[in-house]
């Protein structure tokens, strides 16, 4: 189960609404490398993970990703508050507005809604951890790209925090992969799949 902490992991307080920025930042909510996919990926992979330490890691990183999607949603929400019809038309926010008004809906910057195809749970320890490592790097690149396009420090600070977290998670998953390999046949990590084959490893 989960308990809700009534706060953000890192503060989001954006003075000036900017619906143009909101339309690209929303991709880290519902886009291919966004935080919604991240949390679903890790929390889903837990069930076929055979090792207790990595069950813990997937649970704890997956939980932190829920806090990250909340930060992204807070940013989109604050960037689209108090808009006039003129501002909506001028910023190109009108296409989103007709479908969702000022609600926060999980789509990519390209407007494609979130899809389960963005994630994988392959039921193989080595495969799933590589998926996770790649996912953290893809999210980091996305934050780098957002930071290239955005100048407002109120928006940049939480984005910079989230970018750093991708790097930490990548580090932890890398260590997780090493810990998994330590339990396998060092001459052939793929000799069996410890998620499925019962007698496996050293």
């Amino acid at each position: 189960m989960w308990q809700y902490d009534k706060k953000l992991q890192f503060p989001v307080n954006i003075k000036n609404p900017d619906p143009r920025a909101a339309q690209i930042i929303i991709t880290q909510y519902g886009g291919p490398d966004g935080e919604l996919g991240a949390s679903m990926r890790y929390l889903t992979q837990r069930y076929s993970m055979p090792y207790d330490d990595l069950k813990g890691l997937l649970t704890d990183v997956g939980t932190e990703e829920l806090a990250h999607l909340e930060m992204i949603c807070a940013m989109v929400h604050q960037l689209t508050r108090n808009l006039t019809p003129e501002e909506i038309k001028k910023s190109g926010f009108d296409k989103y507005f007709v479908d969702h008004t000022a609600a926060v809906y999980p789509i990519a910057a390209s407007a494609l809604p979130w899809r389960a195809e963005y994630i994988q749970a392959k039921g193989d320890v080595i495969t799933d951890l590589h998926e996770d490592l790649a996912a953290e790097q893809k999210a980091r690149t996305t934050y780098d790209n957002l930071l290239r396009l955005i100048d407002d420090p109120d928006i940049r600070e939480p984005l910079k925090f989230l970018r750093q977290r991708e790097i930490i998670h990548y580090q932890r998953f890398g260590e997780g992969l090493e810990r998994a390999k330590d339990r396998l046949n060092s001459k052939n990590f793929y000799a069996c799949n410890p998620s499925f084959d019962k007698k496996c490893g050293k």
Binding site: F10, L57, D60, V61, E64, I168, H169, R172, E175, G176
Partner: peptide, 19 residues
């Protein structure tokens, strides 16, 4: 207090792979 909450969570992830 928020900073300590963050530090604690960071330690949780670290301890998962360095128990």
């Amino acid at each position: 207090i928020d900073a300590l909450d963050f530090a604690l969570y960071e330690m949780v992830l670290y301890l998962d792979t360095h128990p």
